Simulated scan of single mutants.
Amino acid sequence: MRSRRRSAGCGKQLKDEQRGRRPLLDSVRERDLNDEDDSIKARLATLRDQSRQLRTRKAQLEQPSAVPEPAALSKIRTRIRIRIRIRIRIRIRIRIRIREIFDHGNHIAKKALVEALIKES
């Protein structure tokens, strides 16, 4: 769905670029503009490059995306689960340490903890 939107956006940009280029090309064909004008040549070259890039990008977006193999998906899922477990364990350890400081720590440790918590938030 996103690729369709992107493809439509590229198509719109391509049409806009072509519209912007047509008056210049028409006037060049009719010899209204000086053929030796470097700024016009540079602008036309830029527009041609942009059109080429947009066509290439549109073609890339219209290609179906590759679906990962089940083994690769399983590996990704496992890594995500491991990272979540690690984060949960770290949070539990932090909570335990905070409780220990509040229950058994001296006033200096409690003050330092509160200051650190305020500084983080």
Score class of each variant (00 low, 15 high):
Met1Arg: 10
Arg2Ser: 11
Ser3Met: 05
Arg5Gly: 08
Arg6Pro: 00
Arg6Trp: 09
Ser7Thr: 01
Ala8Trp: 03
Ala8Tyr: 06
Ala8Met: 06
Gly9Val: 05
Gly9Cys: 12
Lys12Gln: 14
Lys15His: 13
Lys15Asn: 15
Glu17Ile: 06
Glu17Pro: 01
Glu17Asp: 05
Arg19Trp: 11
Gly20Asn: 13
Gly20Trp: 05
Gly20Leu: 14
Pro23Ala: 08
Leu25Ser: 11
Leu25Phe: 06
Asp26Pro: 08
Glu30Tyr: 00
Glu30Asn: 02
Asp32Lys: 07
Leu33Lys: 01
Leu33Asn: 02
Asn34Trp: 01
Asp35Leu: 04
Glu36Leu: 08
Glu36His: 11
Ser39Pro: 01
Lys41Ser: 13
Arg43Ile: 04
Leu44Thr: 02
Leu44Lys: 10
Ala45Thr: 12
Thr46Met: 08
Arg48Ala: 10
Asp49Arg: 06
Asp49Tyr: 06
Gln50Trp: 07
Gln50Asn: 14
Ser51Thr: 12
Arg52Ala: 15
Gln53Asn: 11
Gln53Lys: 11
Gln53Phe: 02
Gln53Ser: 11
Leu54Asn: 04
Thr56Gly: 09
Arg57Lys: 12
Lys58Arg: 13
Leu61Lys: 06
Leu61Pro: 01
Leu61Trp: 03
Leu61Glu: 09
Glu62Asn: 12
Ser65Glu: 15
Pro68Lys: 15
Glu69Thr: 07
Glu69Phe: 05
Ala71Arg: 11
Ala72Gly: 01
Leu73Ile: 09
Lys75Ala: 13
Ile76Leu: 15
Thr78Ser: 13
Arg79Trp: 07
Arg79Asp: 12
Arg79Ala: 12
Ile80His: 09
Ile80Trp: 08
Arg83His: 08
Ile86Leu: 04
Arg89Phe: 07
Arg89Gly: 12
Ile90Phe: 00
Ile90Trp: 00
Ile90Val: 13
Arg91Ala: 03
Ile92Asn: 04
Ile92Arg: 10
Arg93Asn: 07
Arg97Ala: 13
Arg97Cys: 03
Ile98Ser: 04
Ile98Pro: 03
Ile98Trp: 01
Ile101Lys: 09
Asp103Asn: 08
Asp103Arg: 04
His104Met: 01
Gly105Cys: 10
Gly105Gln: 06
Asn106Arg: 05
Asn106Ile: 05
Asn106Ser: 03
Asn106Lys: 06
His107Ser: 15
His107Leu: 15
Ile108Asp: 13
Ala109Gly: 03
Lys110Thr: 05
Lys111Thr: 10
Ala112Thr: 04
Ala112Glu: 09
Leu113Ile: 04
Val114Glu: 05
Ala116Tyr: 06
Ala116Asp: 02
Leu117Val: 05
Leu117Lys: 02
Ile118Ser: 04
Ile118Asp: 04
Ser121Lys: 14
Ser121Val: 11
